[in-house]
């Protein structure tokens, strides 16, 4: 599943990020904001028009990003035992 398809309030883990699908500046900003493989993510809010952009909790921060950007992030269900 990709991050843009993740239903709200469902915890997930970042499996892999397709950095090549992102522009250089965008990829750098994502790394700075804590996007990384193995990090917990959760979609909290979606924008009023076309459910875009989305606000995701990444680690302890809340990050707003567009669905198109979020599509570069592959996620897998959060392991329940660890929650």
């Amino acid at each position: 599943m990709r991050l843009n398809e993740l239903p709200p309030h469902e915890a997930a883990l970042i499996r892999v990020i397709d950095w090549t699908a992102l522009k250089a500046g965008e990829a750098r900003r994502m790394r700075e904001l804590g996007f990384d493989e193995g990090v917990r993510v959760e979609t909290l809010h979606r924008g009023p028009v076309g459910m875009d952009p989305i606000a995701c909790r990444v680690g302890r921060m809340t990050i707003a990003l567009r669905r198109k950007t979020a599509a570069a992030v592959s996620v897998e269900p959060f392991p329940m035992a660890a929650e």
């Binding site: 522009k23 965008e26 994502m30 952009p53 990050i63 567009r66 950007t69």
Partner: peptide, 8 residues
Amino acid sequence: SAGFMMEM
């Protein structure tokens, strides 16, 4: 268009 990414 460039993207949109911000810390809230």
